[in-house]
Amino acid sequence: MAEQTLANHSDRLNAINIYPVADADTGTNLYLTVRSASQALLHLPPADVGTTLASAGRAAMESARGNSGTLFSVFLAAMAEPLAGQPRFNGPLLAAALHRAQLRSWTALSEPMPGTILSVLEAAARGAAEVESTLGGDDSNHALALTLDGAVAAARTAVVLTESQLGVLTEAKVVDAGGVGLLLILDCLRSVVLGEPLQEDLLDGLSGYKVQDPNIALTMPEQAGVEVMCTVNLSPLAAAGLRMQLDELGDSVIMSAVSEEADDAGSYPWRVHVHVPSPAIALDAIQAVGDPNNVSISALSPNATEDAHDLL
């Protein structure tokens, strides 16, 4: 359901995508990342909730696109951790999973900012925890419904607030695109778990989100540079060193372990995301410590006509 919902909303999400760069692709990136997760599940045998989400999270992270797609994949993989071995979902597990997801997502980004998808995730976790705390550990389906309602309602409030939390959004009079995308995904989760339709009025009144609103992303100043993404096997110490170096070379640095399983040398697969002036700046640093694979290079300008790989 999330895949189809994001496909339906991708154009509008792209139109308000102006932070951290106005590259008009948040909707597309979230859709492609979620599609990778859903397609991975088509080939898996039935499993418990945690195993299923962990598989989806790994697939999403390996194919993550953009800031929003990368953070969503971290969110998905982290949600799986408290659910390991659990045969069914319930309110306490949902609250624990959202709490774990918001912690992992904030730490994955070198310079986390309020007013983004992170704020929406944090609010969802807080909303779920507040409801669950009043229910005394009730694991009934009714309690799960109330907890899901609390998470989605809090997430929507947080989306509205994003417009006032980041100056660039305030000036453009739009809410954060990644935050709206996460809100849609959370409502899809609510719909599937409760067997209820999506909330038709969920996005009503969000600044810049009406169909007739202009494509604000395409009116923003031209963006220079490229987005580089890859997967690389590193020890935790080497990963910390690479993060520090990428922080000096570029911005929007996101690094997260794809899995908790180390190889014989004690290295873990890490998904790396960074914005830099040119691909070689990031790739030289990454290749100095490991052998990157699944490399993706995209121009940050939504109007780019050249292949970003040609910039190497």
Rank of each mutant, 00 (worst) to 15 (best):
S73E: 01
M79N: 02
A7M: 10
I286Y: 09
T116S: 15
D48C: 06
D48G: 12
A15H: 09
A125G: 15
G195I: 11
A40I: 08
Y268I: 08
T305G: 15
L202W: 11
N8A: 15
V193W: 11
R12V: 02
G266H: 04
M61N: 04
S235F: 11
R12S: 05
G181K: 09
Y268P: 14
E62H: 13
A129T: 14
E130M: 15
E222G: 04
Q287V: 01
L234N: 04
L311G: 02
T51D: 08
F89M: 13
I18H: 03
A304I: 10
P279G: 12
A239Q: 14
L184G: 02
A101Y: 02
L182G: 03
I254S: 02
S68I: 00
E62F: 13
L121N: 09
P87T: 07
A37D: 02
A145S: 14
A240W: 12
G225P: 05
L166G: 00
A282L: 10
P114W: 05
N303C: 03
D291G: 04
G136W: 08
E122N: 06
D291W: 12
V21G: 04
A125Y: 01
D139W: 11
D48F: 06
P82I: 09
N293R: 12
G50M: 04
S119V: 05
N67G: 03
S133K: 15
T157Y: 09
D213P: 04
E163H: 15
Q165K: 08
L109W: 03
S164D: 13
G150C: 08
V193Q: 11
N29L: 07
M113Y: 06
E306C: 09
E200C: 04
L148K: 03
N293C: 10
S133G: 14
V274T: 14
Q223P: 08
L148Q: 03
R190Y: 07
